[in-house]
């Protein structure tokens, strides 16, 4: 049976080294590039005509735009306008990374903890620095929950700080684990199809169903990552 973990292996395509660090162009990098190219082409071509009444094709980019714009304005408000391009980029990058990963024999770069962790850490640092920059020392009032008796505060504040610090971990692990688990499961079921012969139809059906589920999860996880980023940004911009 094929190794279900094998699909996550990083393969060097173009060896590259700077300052004695290996930064080779790998299959992961390839799929990042493909995601960029694909999303850019899709949005660029669909908005090319700029018609007043959108065609179905043009609606794609408009729906993307309005989806993210609503997400930003609902969760952050008017002050979130500056972050719209960032949220938009984050969402499209993750969505197309996840979706490209659904193609057979492709690679899912979001199934690597380091990728999601760097993104989550970036969001975490952005949110923290932004909060301190906007609100100064008041930002740390975030760790003091409202309506809690004074006696409880010594207990509550550490809990709040720990939960705040664990955000990048939860954010990155949620995405990575979902992607990895889904793809591993698909691969395991796929591995049963041929050895079982005629009864292989059962794992095949399961795989078909799982594929649909995974497409949903691919969208959902990109959405969750993005909306959590919005919520964190809202906290540091508007406190509460």
């Amino acid at each position: 049976m094929a190794d279900p973990i094998h699909q996550f292996e990083i393969k060097e395509l173009i060896p590259l080294e700077i300052f004695e660090t290996n930064i080779s162009y790998t299959n992961s990098s390839l799929f990042m590039s493909l995601a960029i190219i694909f999303v850019t082409l899709l949005l660029l071509l669909s908005i090319k005509n700029k018609s007043l009444i959108p065609s179905r094709f043009q609606s794609i980019s408009e729906i993307f735009y309005e989806f993210i714009a609503n997400m930003v304005s609902d969760n952050i408000g008017d002050k979130g306008r500056k972050f719209f391009p960032l949220i938009f980029t984050l969402f499209t990058f993750l969505l197309f990374g996840n979706m490209l990963g659904m193609l057979p024999y492709s690679f899912t770069f979001t199934s690597h903890i380091i990728v999601t962790f760097v993104l989550a850490m970036f969001v975490f640092l952005l949110v923290t620095l932004l909060g301190i920059f906007i609100h100064g020392f008041k930002f740390f009032g975030l760790f003091v929950p409202k309506g809690v008796p004074m006696i409880m505060l010594p207990l509550m504040i550490p809990i709040e700080i720990i939960s705040y610090l664990s955000r990048p971990i939860s954010l990155s692990v949620r995405l990575f684990a979902n992607m990895m688990a889904g793809h591993t499961m698909l691969k395991i079921f796929a591995g049963f199809i041929v050895p079982l012969g005629i009864f292989g139809i059962a794992p095949l059906m399961v795989d078909v169903a799982l594929t649909a589920l995974e497409v949903l999860i691919a969208f959902l996880q990109a959405y969750v990552f993005t909306i959590l980023t919005c919520l964190y940004l809202n906290e540091s911009i508007n406190l509460h």
């Binding site: 990083i10 660090t21 990098s29």
Partner: peptide
Amino acid sequence: PQLEITTYPSQIFWLVVS
């Protein structure tokens, strides 16, 4: 493969660039 630290620099680099 996710825990192979040797691949991290390349992934981080290309992630940032992309």
